[in-house]
C-alpha cells in the first residue's frame, strides 16, 4: 500500500516540477510574433499588389501561416508557389491565375503629356515609386516600381500603362537550352540493345 502511495506521490511531484518548469519557460522564452510569417513573407515578391486578396504581402504571409492556399500570388509565379511548398512542406498547387504562365515583368509608365497631376496614383503606390506633386506632372521611378498595377485603376485620365521591361544588354540572360532528344542512341534501335543483351 505504502509503495503505491510513494509511487503516486513521486509521479505527482515529478508532474508538478515539470509543469512548473514548462510554465516558466513558456513565459521566459516567449517568442514574439510568429517567425514562420517572416519566412513566408521573405519568399513573397513584395509587390504589395493585393492580387491575393490581402492588403499587401505580409497579410498574405500571415494568412498562409493560418492555412490559406499558397498559390494566390501571380507576381511570384510558380517558383514562389514551389518555394512556399518547400518551406511549409505542403503540396505545390498550380498557380491560381488567369494566365498561369510565368509572369512577364512589367513596370508602370505614365504618359506624361496626359497626366493632369491629380496625385491619385501617388497615393495608391505602395512603395512610393511615383514622383510628383499636385498639378505637377508625375513620373514613375522605374527602378523602384514593383509592377503591382495598383496605380492604373485610380488614374482619372487613364494615362498609366503597364509595359514590360525593355530587354537590354544589362538584363539579357541566356535562354534555357532547347531540350534535346532524351533518348540514348542505342535506344532508338531497341533490337540492337536487346540483341546485345540477349
Amino acid at each position: 500500500m505504502s509503495a503505491v502511495l510513494v509511487a503516486v506521490l513521486v509521479l505527482l511531484g515529478l508532474g508538478l516540477v515539470f509543469g512548473i518548469l514548462l510554465g516558466y519557460s513558456s513565459i521566459r522564452f516567449k517568442v514574439e510574433g510568429n517567425p514562420l510569417v517572416d519566412q513566408v513573407d521573405a519568399l513573397l515578391p513584395q509587390t504589395q499588389c493585393g492580387q491575393c486578396g490581402h492588403p499587401g504581402c505580409r497579410p498574405y504571409a500571415e494568412a498562409i501561416v493560418n492555412g490559406e492556399a499558397i498559390n494566390k500570388c501571380p507576381p511570384g509565379g510558380q517558383s514562389t508557389v514551389e518555394a512556399l511548398a518547400d518551406l511549409l512542406d505542403v503540396e505545390a498547387l498550380p498557380l491560381d491565375a488567369e494566365d498561369a504562365e510565368e509572369p512577364i515583368k512589367k513596370v508602370a509608365y505614365i504618359r506624361e503629356d496626359e497626366c493632369i497631376g491629380c496625385t491619385k496614383c501617388i497615393q495608391a503606390c505602395p512603395v512610393d515609386a511615383i514622383l510628383g506633386a499636385a498639378k505637377q506632372m508625375h513620373t514613375v521611378i522605374v527602378s523602384e516600381c514593383t509592377g503591382c498595377d495598383l496605380c492604373v485603376e485610380p488614374c482619372p485620365v487613364d494615362c498609366i500603362d503597364m509595359l514590360p521591361l525593355e530587354p537590354s544588354l544589362n538584363n539579357w540572360q541566356w535562354p534555357a537550352p532547347k531540350p534535346g532528344i532524351e533518348l540514348i542512341a542505342t535506344d532508338r534501335q531497341p533490337g540492337i540493345a536487346l540483341e546485345v543483351k540477349g
Partner: peptide, 27 residues
C-alpha cells in the same frame, strides 16, 4: 550559363523584393 543567369536573376529579384518591402514598411 542558363543556370547562372537564373540564379543571378533570383538574387536580383530577392534584393528588389527586400528593397520594396523596406519602402513599403517605410511608407
Amino acid at each position: 550559363r542558363f543556370a547562372k543567369a537564373e540564379i543571378r536573376k533570383e538574387d536580383d529579384e530577392q534584393r528588389k523584393a527586400d528593397h520594396a518591402r523596406l519602402r513599403f514598411e517605410a511608407r
